[in-house]
């Protein structure tokens, strides 16, 4: 089974791109499954079901969705193998901009939209920086010039990535994207494979439920901001 990880900021068009991608790969119905990792809630399952795509959804709740991803991804692979999928695609919403769900040797796609501001690519961390392919959506609403500037800014942080413009509504561009997926390799398990990037050390008192504000309530891994005289 081939495994593809798709990640990107909320509402960037991940689900739209995945559905178009599956459509144009032309694999038999039901042979490509999706696992969605989200935080609190998601309505993606309805859209996948509507497109006849087998779907599982998991909610990370109070922990970082990428930590949740790592702890569950091998089980997801086992689920996909059991159902005999040819391909399993994971969708995760990148939220903290500091983690990414990419695994060494597993084909990874970052979905980001053109509307998010010229400098956004330079602010997103490993989510963008370590992806094999960056799919840029919503190019239908902005000018060609902005698309080109946006692609340039993506190359600034991920010089080796392929940047592909995909229209999540019409599917334009998803064909070339699907061609890249042929490079994805077959796997049976992820055991002992490695994440491309460490997930952040998130063990401060607030991680464990503290709500009170003030120095005396802050413990563990804290990073204090430095305020300079102006």
């Amino acid at each position: 089974m081939k495994l593809i990880t798709v990640a990107g900021p909320p509402s960037s068009g991940k689900t739209s791109v995945i559905i178009k991608l599956i459509e144009c790969m032309g694999l038999p119905k039901g042979s490509v499954g999706v696992v969605k990792f989200d935080c609190l809630n998601s309505f993606d399952n309805l859209r996948y079901k509507e497109a006849d795509i087998p779907i599982q959804t998991g909610f990370s709740g109070k922990i970082c969705p990428d930590h949740y991803f790592v702890s569950n991804i091998d089980d997801a692979v086992q689920w996909g193998m059991k159902l005999g999928f040819q391909m399993l695609i994971t969708e995760s919403a990148g939220l903290c901009n500091r983690c990414s769900p990419y695994i060494n040797g597993i084909f990874s796609i970052c979905v980001i939209d053109n509307l998010s501001g010229a400098n956004t690519p330079r602010k997103i961390g490993p989510l963008l920086k370590l992806a094999d392919v960056v799919a840029v959506t919503k190019g239908d609403i902005v000018s060609q010039a902005e698309r080109e500037v946006f692609a340039f800014n993506i190359k600034q942080v991920n010089a080796s990535a392929k940047v592909i413009f995909v229209n999540g509504i019409t599917g334009q561009g998803s064909f070339i994207l699907s061609k890249y997926l042929q490079q994805a390799r077959d796997i049976q398990t992820l055991r002992d494979m490695k994440l491309r990037f460490t997930t952040p050390a998130a063990v401060c008192s607030y991680c464990t439920g503290e709500t009170r504000i003030g120095e005396s309530h802050q413990m563990g891994m804290m990073k204090k901001m430095e305020f300079k005289e102006l």
């Binding site: 509307l115 239908d140 609403i141 902005v142 000018s143 902005e146």
Partner: peptide, 13 residues
């Protein structure tokens, strides 16, 4: 390069 009726500028420049 593409050009269509419903394209806009969105950057704050």
């Amino acid at each position: 390069a593409q050009l269509s009726q419903n394209m806009n500028f969105v950057m704050d420049l």
